[in-house]
Structures are given as C-alpha cells and as structure tokens.
C-alpha cells in the first residue's frame, strides 16, 4: 500500500509537471503573439522612436507626419466614371492638416469637454502663421510629458506637427465643477516654430481691448464675447488698454511671458493660451450663462477657412 501510494504520488507529480509545462507553453504562445502585435510600429513613427528623448532646440520646419497618405493618382489610373479623388487639405508648407476630435485629449491628460459648437463661425484664426494645438504639460517639455513617453525639451520637433489635440479641461491639480479632474479652460497653441517673439497673434474679431495686465490681453466684442490671449510678449504689444481693434489686426508676438503680480516670472513654454467666454442659453427661455467655452471647434473651423484662402 505504501509502495503503491508512492508510485501513485510519483505519477501524480509527473502528470502535474507535464500539465504545468503545457500551460507554460500556452502562456509563452500568448506572450509571443502579443509581442509581435506591439512591435508592429506604424512606419511613420519608426524614425521618431529611434531618436526618442532627444531635444532639438531650434527645429527646422517640422516634417509634418501625415496620418492619412494622399491617395496615389498615377497617370492613366483615372476612370472616367469615377470623380477625381480628393486630397486632404494642407497648410502653407504642404503638410496635411489633421486634428483629433473635440474632447479627445492625450492619454492620461484629463477628462476633456466634448462640445462641437462653433460659437463664432466668422472669426479669423488668432495667429498669422500655421500653428500646432497641443498640450504644453503632457508632451515634450511639459512636466507630465513622461506619462506619454514624451521626455525631452519643448523644442522637440514632434511638438511642431499635426495632428492637433484639444486641451480644454486638461487635468490640473485642482478639481472643479466644469471639468471634474480637469482645470484648464483654454486651448494651448504652439506657434509655427520654437522661437519666441516672431509669430504674430491677431484679433479674431473687431473688438475692444478691455484688459492688459501681467501676461494677458483681453478683448471684448460688441456682442459681449471675450477672448483672452495669454503669454504674448507683453513688452512689445501692438495694442493698448481701451483700443478698438479690427479683425486680423496684430496684437502682439507669441512668447512665454508669465508674471506674478509683483512682476516676478513663472516658467512656461512658448505658446499662446487662448480662451473664449460666451453668454449663451441652453434652451429658449432659460437664463443666460456667461462662462468660458471650449473654442476648439471654433478654431478648427477658422483654421480650415484660413487654409482655403
């Protein structure tokens, strides 16, 4: 009985070992399958991954990674029954303008605020040159850039590229009603290059200059809409408090000015922080609410119009 029991125990051990080996093989297969999937890097990013982390101080013209390749139109390919294939809209440098939907913030960067309202369909875009709307905090040069594997300086060439991303209700330390877990009620606009004091911000509408202090210039239109321009070069503004400005008129150059009330500086990246307040009613008969709104789709619309000029 004892000898038989030991034999049985030996058999059980062997069986268990074989079973474990099979399970391990299955897990190995699963692991190998997933590894293969992860390593299939989209070709347009292969280059960027190689020099990941390198900060380029003064980039040349950004390369313009194109999320959707323009369709090939080889001579002789056209079929008379099929209308000519359209191509995506490009900017002045020939780079395809691409943008993420409103509310699609970078991973781990906050709740966002999905609002597809184009509050002011007739504004002009607030800058003269092309720009890149993206995060100043959760990308290269931002203190949370590592969350997205974007470790490096603000001048990293990938910061100066499409697609645009919404940054309204991007996560900050505070919690508040409008953006639970958010706290950034504006859009961050990176100028065409990582050089301050050369790219102009312009008035989006005819308006009055109603505030010029510390690091902001504020406009109000005859309809009441308020536009806030932050981080311009405050020492070289083209407007003064109380001025009437015309749509498209230069206000100042995009910089990284950021001041406390005693005049001491706070560090920030070179960008225009753009805000918009609207007085609106959510339904007929309701009381109006005059608050910051997400200007993302208004700016997408204005940029689209600008690129078609």
């Amino acid at each position: 009985m004892r000898a038989g029991s030991e034999t049985q125990k030996g058999n059980t051990t062997v069986n268990l070992l074989i079973g474990l080996a099979i399970v391990s093989l299955c897990f190995l297969a699963v692991w190998w399958y997933e590894k293969q999937a992860v390593e299939s890097v989209p070709p347009q990013f292969a280059d960027e991954l190689e020099d990941e982390g390198s900060a380029i101080e003064e980039p040349d013209a950004p390369s313009g990674a194109i999320p959707e390749d323009p369709p090939d139109t080889l001579p002789g390919d056209e079929d008379e029954d099929i209308p000519p294939t359209d191509t995506p809209l490009t900017d002045a440098q020939g780079d395809v303008f691409a943008y993420l939907p409103v509310g699609d913030l970078l991973p781990l960067s906050g709740p966002g605020f999905v609002d597809d309202t184009v509050y002011r369909p007739d504004i002009v875009f607030p800058t003269e040159d092309r720009v890149f709307l993206n995060s100043q905090v959760y990308r290269y040069g931002g203190y949370q850039g590592s969350l997205n594997g974007m470790e490096g300086g603000q001048c990293e060439i990938a910061n100066y590229d499409y697609p645009w991303q919404d940054t309204f209700c991007e996560k900050r330390s505070r919690n508040q009603d409008l953006c639970p877990g958010g706290g950034h009620e504006g859009l961050d606009i990176r100028p065409a290059s990582c050089t301050k004091n050369v790219h102009w911000a312009v008035a989006v509408e005819d308006a009055r200059v109603i505030d010029v202090r510390r690091h902001w210039v504020t406009l109000q239109t005859a309809d009441g809409t308020i536009y806030n321009y932050l981080h311009l070069n405050m020492g070289a503004l083209e407007v003064a408090l109380g001025d009437d400005v015309a749509q498209g008129q230069r206000i100042g150059v995009i910089s990284n000015d950021f001041y406390n009330s005693d005049g001491s500086s706070v560090a920030t990246t070179i960008h225009l922080h753009f805000e918009m307040y609207e007085n609106y009613v959510a339904s007929d008969g309701a009381d109006p609410l005059f608050t910051k709104v997400n200007p993302y789709m208004t700016l997408v619309s204005a940029y689209d119009a600008k690129l078609r000029e």
């Binding site: 989209p42 990013f45 991973p107 594997g149």
Partner: peptide, 24 residues
C-alpha cells in the same frame, strides 16, 4: 517610456482626421 510613446502615437494616428480639399 518607449511603450508609452508608442501608445500615444497609436492613439494619435487612430483618432486623427483630415479635411477634404473639395466639397468639405
């Protein structure tokens, strides 16, 4: 960091949209 960057890149590529030049 490389995996995070890859995730971010994939997110951007998946969600990016463009505007047609004709009949937008």
């Amino acid at each position: 960091p490389a995996d995070r960057l890859l995730r971010t890149r994939e997110f951007l590529v998946e969600r990016a949209q463009t505007r047609p030049r004709l009949q937008p």
